[in-house]
Amino acid sequence: MQFPGMTQMLQTVKTPPKIRLILGGVLTVMSVWICLMLLPTRLPGMALAGIGPNWLLIWVVIWSFKRSVWQGMSAGLVLGLLQDAMTEENPTHIFSLMFVGYLTSRLQKQRFLRENFIVITLVTFGMAVVGETVMALQFSSLGNRTLIDIWKHHQLIALSSAILSSLWAPVLYFPLNQLWKWSAIPHD
């Protein structure tokens, strides 16, 4: 049995690059929203000492991995603003996520890093530590917590967040990468 109408419809959905681009954009925004909705959850198996993965940081790393410095940094800016909305505005998450976007997009210049799951995992691990360090520096400059408290806390959350984020990064990387390939959203 054949469904000529169905096949035709799928083809028309598949062929025009405009529709693909729009659909890709909508799904990209949806993925950010899903990451935001995952942030306050602590599902069993997803938390370590009450600390969960930093989903927005994973998203920024994946986005910036094969894009230009400017694209990486603007993603950091947008997602930093959104994380501020979910938590507190002072100190802001903009700097940490923008810095992560910048560093990740700079990594592509050295050609020894080829994209695969292991590299994404390693990069996310490093970036999670970098991101939390930027936050800790901001807290230190604010001065309403003692330095000992800040850096003790930093040690704990940088490590837990880095381990969890890096382990969950491939889960987000695979669908997003496929989506961006399929929809031809500007990619390097």
Binding site: L39, P40, T41, R42, G50, N54, T87, H153, S161
Partner: peptide, 14 residues
């Protein structure tokens, strides 16, 4: 209680 803090620097409940 439907959630925890969206960041690890603050301790919140949703």
């Amino acid at each position: 209680v439907i959630g925890r803090s969206a960041d690890h620097w603050w301790s919140n409940l949703v």
